[in-house]
Design a protein around this nucleic acid. Structure first.
Lengths: 145, 145
DNA sequence: TTCATTGCAAATTATTTGCATTTGA
DNA sequence: TCAAATGCAAATAATTTGCAATGAA
């Protein structure tokens, strides 16, 4: 494990990672993770979940997304899956609230353009699309809304 | 004013808009706005600020951005400035924390691509770039960090 | 052993809500 | 006049923190 940087490998940390890995692309709140980890480890505290998530975030093992619904959500990082850091973005349906992942490398050109135009050195980006998913579009048309 | 939709034009609402217009591109928290409005209207309550911001958000007169620093921020909407809705995005410096606006229409092609590929109907998007601004890059090089 | 980590409870902070009062149309 | 809007204080809810106890190295 990457934790051999002076950090301890605890059961709690492993379980948080495990739960996130088992729920890839699911955008879980700290509370969600807490409930699932508790099934295997009932004595865990919510504060530990928060502290672990902060740590994993700093280590780039998890990503954080904010769907503007009042709580921050976490998902396992893409680099966990392969070697190259592939980004993915989110399509958020304003009607049903579901979130769809969208793989993409199309922003690289835009990043280079920004660096040239402004001198800002881009390290990372986050992109969200808001709209309506196919199912909700269909429903709305059937219902003639 | 657009408020002729059954809504009342109150001093409080005008002042919130005014403060936002005077601080274009400044990403203010509700608290920031509260303090500034209080100068002209000391009896205003923070709850009114929140309620007004929600209203203006729904009316698309203000935009909301989240810089992941624990509080939501607001800025006056772009469509307030012209006719066509021009989007702008944010370059966020991880070193000094400053936020730079970045005008862009380059995502339109990407939106069309998404609609074709996934059937998701895109209505809006939000894009944030994280990195290091020119000044912080310079400082870091001078200091040989 | 020993310091990082944990669990718990209390603290903090942003935002929302209930309600009596005020005010714009 | 009268519903909509406001101010205040109390309520909520997510997250953080202090501290004594625990556990991995």
């Amino acid at each position: 494990m990457l934790k051999e940087k002076g950090l301890k490998v605890t059961n709690q940390r492993l379980l948080v990672l495990e739960v996130l890995a088992e729920h890839r692309d699911q955008h879980m709140t700290a509370e969600d993770i807490y409930d699932l980890v508790k099934e295997d480890y009932p004595e865990i505290g919510l504060a530990t979940i928060y502290r672990t998530l902060q740590l994993l975030l700093k280590m780039q093992l998890v990503d954080r997304i904010n769907l503007d619904d009042g709580c921050v959500r976490y998902e396992i990082g893409d680099l966990f899956e392969g070697e190259i850091k592939h980004h993915h973005h989110h399509l958020i349906c304003k009607t049903c609230g579901r979130v769809f992942p969208f793989r993409d490398d199309l922003l690289d050109g835009l990043e280079r353009h920004i660096e040239q135009a402004t001198g800002f050195h881009v390290l990372d980006h986050e992109l969200k699309f808001y709209g309506q998913c196919r199912e909700c579009m269909k429903k709305e048309n059937n219902g003639c809304v």
